[in-house]
Simulated scan of single mutants.
Amino acid sequence: MKFDQFQFLLQNAFCESEGDGPPKVKYKDIPVERLHPLVLAYVGDAYFTLYVRTTLLSYEQNKVRVLHTLDSKIVSATMQAVAFQSLESGLTEQEMSIVKRGRNAKSTVPKSATVAEYRNSTGFEALLGYLYLGKNYERLSELVEKAFAVISREMTKTAKDSGGKK
C-alpha cells in the first residue's frame, strides 16, 4: 500500500470537509456501475463473510476459533470459485459483465489459490458488492444462499472423500 494514499484516506475519511478543501464525495453519490471492481469486491467480500458468519451462528457453535476456521474455508477464494462456477450459468448479462470486470482487475494473487480461482472469486465478490451497493437485496440474498449451499456440499463431499482428515 502506498503511504501517501493511506495518509490521504486517514486525514479525510473521518472529517467533514466544509470550506477547507474539496467537497467529500460519498459512495452513494457515485453510480455503482462506475465504482472500481476491486472496491465492489471489497464490499462483496465483507458482505459474504458476514452472511457466512451469521449463518454459522444458527448451528449453535460457541467456539470462536472453530467458527473462524470454518468461515475462513468457506469464504476462501477456492470455495468461492467453486460456488461461482455453479452459479455462472444462471447469471444475467449485466451480472456477468460485473463479474468479468472483477476478474480482470489487477490484484495480487495469494498463494492459497490458483490464479483462475482467485480471479473467479474476485469476480464473484465484485458481483456481490455491486448487488449490495445497488440495493438489489433480493438477488443478493438468492445468490449468497445458493453459494453457501454449493460450498457446503463441496466441503462435505471433500471431508467424506478424505475420511475427515485434512
Rank of each mutant, 00 (worst) to 15 (best):
S121N: 01
L38W: 01
K28S: 15
T49N: 06
G19R: 03
Y130G: 03
V82P: 00
D71N: 14
S97A: 15
Y118E: 11
L140P: 05
L140T: 05
R53E: 11
A46V: 03
Q7S: 10
V64H: 09
A113L: 05
P37K: 05
V64T: 12
R119T: 07
T49I: 10
I151K: 02
K111L: 11
E154M: 04
H68K: 15
L57S: 05
V52S: 01
M1C: 02
E60L: 12
N104I: 09
K2F: 14
R139F: 02
E93A: 07
K146R: 06
E117C: 02
L9S: 06
D20L: 13
S97N: 13
P22E: 11
H68L: 15
R53C: 15
E60S: 09
S121F: 04
V75K: 01
E18L: 15
L131D: 06
L57I: 07
M96P: 02
G123V: 03
T122L: 07
V144Q: 01
R153M: 06
L57Q: 08
Y42H: 10
K165A: 10
G129C: 06
D4I: 14
S112M: 05
E142H: 09
A83Q: 03
P23Q: 12
G44S: 07
Q80W: 03
V43I: 13
L143H: 01
Q61H: 03
G19C: 03
G134L: 15
F48L: 14
V52Y: 01
V39I: 05
M79G: 04
N104R: 12
K160W: 08
L70Q: 09
Y137E: 08
F84Q: 08
V32F: 05
V32L: 13
N62T: 14
S141W: 11
A41W: 12
V75G: 00
E117H: 06
V150H: 01
T122F: 10
D4S: 15
S141P: 12
V25A: 08
F6W: 08
T78D: 03
L40Q: 01
I74V: 11
L9Y: 09
D45C: 09
V32Q: 02
K111D: 05
F8M: 10
H36E: 07
E95W: 03
